[in-house]
Computed example of a mutant assay.
Amino acid sequence: MKRVYIPSSGPSAWQAFLAKPELHWRTGYSAKTLAYCWESAGGLPPEIARMFDAPAELLLALPEYKVPLPGGSTQSQADVFALVRHADQTCAAMVEGKVNEPFDKTVTEWLNVPSDGKKLRISHICNLLGLSEQHLPQVRYQLIHRAASAVIEALRFKTDEAAMIVHSFSPDRMWFQDFAAFVDLFGLTAEPNAGVVTTLPNGLKLRLGWATGDARFLLA
């Protein structure tokens, strides 16, 4: 993980950090849409700010942020890692940008070949989030490892809470039900454009939210 970061020169600077820069940087898709939205905001996009208690302030945003997880070399790579100050709290937030892209494999599909590394990783994630493996089979793996990465960084930065927020630009809210199923694991009910909060076994608060992005950035 790099420790030195260079200030952004604009939305196009985000492209270089993508896993496949030429393939993933396309108008109407999440990577480019998200970059133009966040750069245009000059702080937190208003729909993201509404996920937090007012007033909410962006302290730092890092695109394509990687967090190591045990059980292999593949890291959890968030579209945006944001340190947010809201009310009298600080939050380490992972933001997952979407247009119509799915959340990829379910936990069952990801564990199709259950290596020792995968078993170690899923056990670690469950311990962090206070979840039982038996409740995960049809939940999207991307959602649980992204939430776990938020918790890892919240503990590392010693923030008051962690957050995992889906920043969706889909006019039809595609894949919202997958997000709602994930939130249901914590005994909570997901609603578009509203944040919900749970307290993890280690006492850390975890904030989950689905924010609807401004559709004009789909044309960027």
Results as ranks from 00 to 15, higher is better:
F81Q: 09
T106W: 02
H124G: 04
I122V: 05
V166H: 00
W175M: 09
S170M: 12
L200K: 06
P192F: 09
I165N: 12
P114A: 14
I122L: 11
L188W: 00
F186A: 11
L155F: 07
A180D: 10
A148Y: 01
L128S: 01
A181M: 08
E191P: 02
E133H: 06
D184S: 15
S132G: 08
L129W: 04
M164N: 07
T198G: 04
V197K: 04
P192V: 11
H167W: 12
H135A: 12
A150Y: 01
Y65D: 01
N202C: 14
V197S: 03
S76N: 02
A162I: 05
T189I: 11
K119M: 09
E57K: 00
D184A: 15
K118T: 05
G195W: 02
L62W: 03
A190P: 00
T159Q: 12
V80G: 11
L111K: 09
Q134T: 11
P137C: 01
L185R: 13
R156W: 09
S132I: 00
N127T: 07
R121G: 02
L58F: 00
A181R: 14
L200A: 03
A150S: 10
C91M: 11
Y65L: 00
V197A: 00
L60A: 09
H135Y: 10
A154Y: 08
E96V: 01
A181H: 09
H135R: 15
L83W: 08
L188D: 02
